[in-house]
Nucleic acid binder design. Structure first.
Lengths: 247, 247
DNA sequence: AGTTGTGTGTACGAAATCGTACCGAAGTCG
DNA sequence: CGACTTCGGTACGATTTCGTACACACAACT
């Protein structure tokens, strides 16, 4: 498990110049205040940002890659949130909670920035515009979560699997990314063989290719058709968040 | 079968003097500012507070009874949140969103208060203590939602059914309340006959009685054992929220 | 008393997923 | 090169839930 097998499997290098959309949407004055505190970080595959119940010492703003929030329970682990360059890790501090109740870790390697919680909160509390932006983001996360609740109840594994791959593609900024089926099975809250079958179906349909931890999206439009409505709903919600904060 | 009912369809009248715990936890000065704006309301069974996408003109604080937030999707309806006297309906306005993306309606009749959004927000924005309380409540709701996501994926219908009945009992302040199995099936996101089977199992085990829309919790401890861990987790989270705001 | 509507129990084949086991293919390392 | 590890495909009986249909119980109303 400690073996870093990423070295020899070639994948398109993540494009360099991606920005975090939340930071981008900030008023320039607020961004300038945060700038000196922002520390560049790289996100390694499977790196843990927070254990469940950990103090939120920093908040993280990915520019590329993807973090997952997962709920560890007695009978399994289920993903409850994904964060890419459209979001941040550590939202509870915006709501005056100092701890993250879930595990946060990196699903797709990438890079970004982090900032200690105190200076971050200082800027947020001083700037109504910044606070507004971040709280609206929290509401978006809330809506996504509500979507997941229904999705996990109503939709088939195939559809949820397609949805997850689409979300990953968006955040990877690439049609090719690294992801073992075993990990995917944790995220979807099902057993590994079930993912294998679902992935085979998508592969047979010519929508993806899947080889030893390397996923390639072949037919994105087809995959969107195979996915449940939840993908479109959450995607549009995120886009409209940023539309509201442009200009 | 068992015709030992105490009377006909009469259910214990909801006790009168229950308060909303959020309002109770407010600093007195804030409560006094809200007081003149608080309008007493009664919640009728199945009354709709908000349609999906509706403007949040008022926020609601139940003193008794229970409201549900549900997500209507193409292939069914699933409950994504429950609000009793420990909470409020209309949290998105705290996060600068003016609309509620879900349907909110009354599951258990009761009463409470409402207040127009503007004066409510004015008090919240003026009082850091009030804002802190309400935002912490939003975080609690967020955590509950994350729990539901995993619960819907991992736990059996029997366990989820038991959990739901326990949550309802808490909010009904009574071991007896009105609830048809058909409604319960919507809430749990399953078909009605499945609820019938699950309810029979709980009934056969001597944990509840269920007659024509009238549920009676017979063995609360046993029901807690039958329920998944999610009940205890969310229950404790709510209690600790209020523990933090006492004194 | 009969009718109607609502709420509930039950049945049963179909589908999805579980739980587990085993095998093969690809890459890693000694 | 050969042993080992990781990853993925497949199989199959067990279990859960679906989807649908039907019958019964109770209450309200004619």
């Amino acid at each position: 498990m400690e073996n870093d097998n990423t070295s020899s499997v070639s994948v398109d290098a993540p494009p360099t110049a991606y920005h975090n959309r939340l930071l981008e949407a900030l008023p320039e004055s607020d961004y300038l205040r945060l700038l000196p505190e922002l520390e560049p970080v790289t996100f390694e595959l499977r790196q843990v940002l927070f254990e469940p119940g950990a103090d939120i010492t920093h908040v993280y703003f990915p520019s590329s890659g993807m973090a997952s929030l997962v709920n560890d329970m007695k009978d399994g682990t289920v993903e409850v949130g994904t964060i890419g360059n459209e979001g941040m890790v550590g939202t509870p501090i915006l709501l005056h909670a100092s701890k993250l109740p879930m595990r946060a870790f990196i699903q797709l390697a990438g890079e970004g920035h982090r900032i200690p919680s105190e200076p971050f909160l200082r800027v947020v509390r001083d700037s109504p515009a910044a606070e507004r932006l971040f709280l609206r983001y929290v509401q978006t996360q809330f809506d996504h979560l509500a979507q997941w609740v229904a999705c996990n109840r109503l939709h088939t594994l195939d559809a949820r699997c397609a949805r997850w791959l689409l979300m990953s593609e968006d955040r990877a900024h690439s049609s090719q990314f690294l992801l073992t089926q075993e990990f995917l099975s944790y995220m979807l809250g099902v057993h590994r063989p079930a993912v294998s079958i679902a992935a085979s179906a998508l592969s047979d349909a010519g929508l993806i290719r899947y080889t030893r931890g390397k996923v390639t999206i072949v037919d994105r439009a087809g995959l969107e058709t195979a996915a449940c409505e939840c993908y479109g709903i959450t995607r549009r919600a995120t886009d409209s968040l940023f539309a509201d904060f442009t200009g």
